[in-house]
Design a protein around this nucleic acid. Sequence first.
DNA 1: GGTGGTTGTCGAAGCGCTTCGACGAAGCGT
DNA 2: ACGCTTCGTCGAAGCGCTTCGACAACCACC
Lengths: 371, 371
Amino acid sequence: MATMQDVARRAGVSVSTVSYVLTGTRPISQATRDKVHAAMAELDYQPNAMARGLASRRSRILGLLMPMDERGLGATETAFVTGAAAAASAAGYHLVLSPIGVADTDELRRLASQRMLDGALPMEVQLDDPRVDLLRELGVPLVLIGRTGDTTGLSYVDIDFDRTVRDAVDHLVGLGHRRIVYVNHSTATIAHGYGPALRTRDAFVAAMTGHGLDPLMIAAEDSAAGGRAALSEAFDRAPDLTAVLAMNENAIFGILGELAGRGLSVPGDVSVVSMVTSPQVAELATPALTAMTSPGSALGRIAVETLLRHLDGGSGEIHQQLLPCVLEVRGSSGPPRATGGDSTTGTGPARPAPARTEEAARRRAATRRRA
Amino acid sequence: MATMQDVARRAGVSVSTVSYVLTGTRPISQATRDKVHAAMAELDYQPNAMARGLASRRSRILGLLMPMDERGLGATETAFVTGAAAAASAAGYHLVLSPIGVADTDELRRLASQRMLDGALPMEVQLDDPRVDLLRELGVPLVLIGRTGDTTGLSYVDIDFDRTVRDAVDHLVGLGHRRIVYVNHSTATIAHGYGPALRTRDAFVAAMTGHGLDPLMIAAEDSAAGGRAALSEAFDRAPDLTAVLAMNENAIFGILGELAGRGLSVPGDVSVVSMVTSPQVAELATPALTAMTSPGSALGRIAVETLLRHLDGGSGEIHQQLLPCVLEVRGSSGPPRATGGDSTTGTGPARPAPARTEEAARRRAATRRRA
DNA sequence: GGTGGTTGTCGAAGCGCTTCGACGAAGCGT
DNA sequence: ACGCTTCGTCGAAGCGCTTCGACAACCACC
């Protein structure tokens, strides 16, 4: 393993000159620079990260704080991670993913106190997030992925849920739908203060009332069964519904299964639009789901770039940015069956015979891949 | 930020003594140790990772090389990661996840050459994996998660596919099934040398012929549509099949959907067993899937412990370990309808009317959660 | 009461890099 | 021709830790 000494000797310059070539902190003549680069290439020199980190007091490591629950990671998160990693790599930084739970402040404290992290990117930020408090206390620069309740003085990037919900509702209303039900996450999740669930709920109410429509929201457990139950509840409360807007990706296939079980076609009888969904998942359904595609990769890139700006320019400006999911119309949305106003579409044409229904109960799905 | 100097001064000892207390490399009297610990606590001292790394030439960082495709991470991988992280943390190491693609050797070279990694754990190892070659070349200790084609001199942990397949087949044969079809990954994946697909294929042939049965394997694209197509092909080639063993988790819900679409009940008409599947995913189906549960967390823990042993004890013994998935019987498997030998169960009782079939085509699902 | 081995502690020399101050050599205006 | 400012480079002082050799002090043992 060649050291900077070796490079300096070989290039016939001092170590400090090599260092300046590497970091660009002082002007170096082209001739010298070439000599140094040649020497580095010949020796296959790679700077020692630890030495550099010790001397410069910067590790060049960015921590992506990623709580890993038992569910795994979806395509959105994955896109986010790869986007962030690419941006970090391009800037000569390393992006390390830390599978640290939201409440696991001990491990985070270790990481941060040992000066191992130049900055942090907490993912899946909660409205009240202990990690954020800890990082601020320790003086670690951070950019949130998501938003805490109070974001004063904090930079963040997040999905623009208001805009996303509005666009989705506009799409459905534009098609002629009047009776739209919003399937959110579970009441427990909402009560727990999960930002996206709360924000989309409010945005849905705003969007619907803006159109002079009644906002009907149903909470659903994060499972296929939850989706089925939610759809049943929806039909109980609004027999004339013609469209479902679903935030809950785990429930979406339960919803589709239940619709099929009731003998209702999509989008013939009921249109379905899925929120914050990747193309990959949307294509799994038949027909493919009209969905609001999350800007995962861009979000990751922007988050890293923002964080790097904080590291360089002192504290710098705080930067708060929202990106909307973009509507991608696929096969699951279309004009409502009864184009009129408040006509009653009913619970479905010629309800299938009991036997069929029972079978239909098996036609479900929703998973999160592999196992 | 307190340094070791501060601690030494406060405890009235030298820095080296403090260091010995910390690392345990030399005996220190109980009295001195107590003084030092007290001083550390008072100052809220945390050793500087960079300085320690530079001086000791060990970063105490383990790299989990995790290729991130667009699909995200399943529950099995997640369990693996958390198991590994817990084991690393317990040993005072950090586990960093690197979203490095299998072919992205440049980034890996950077990470490794900069002496940032004490050891590496490549995940989703391919039969011929450039990362493994590179790491060996660079002299970075490693433990594979999975297996390359030639594993001489390499430590690894992996799923015991032979045993897993055999147990699954035994379960079905024990129930009375004779005509069992194995739904594997796609032919492209198999041709690409994806270890699990190859190993399970061979294991399936062995297990079936061991029972004097005909091993019928169908390849399926990793999607719901692939699962449906595979099932159709299966019925074409073996109209009398009574059980499906599926390795392809992305296709499983397509398989279930297609079965339902044909009016076949599970497990009444056809039993379904899913391989390498987490309980969470298995429970999403109705009935819940009988599955071979992957030992994700244990695998992660063992991998880290093995790697740490390599770091401590010089090169140490190589360690190759296989863990089987354990059978968890749920609702999707049962005795075959026609218990006799080679009776023809047919393509399903009273094939549903065309209209229904068309509707049924919409009753699918399979996703990988979120988006 | 020497000899020899532990045991516990210290001082100092780095680990490989960054960065500060210094300094000769140009380049400039006047 | 004079000082004055860049420009380009060097030497040296650390960054905060580990680790080696040294060395007292103590124990034992014949």
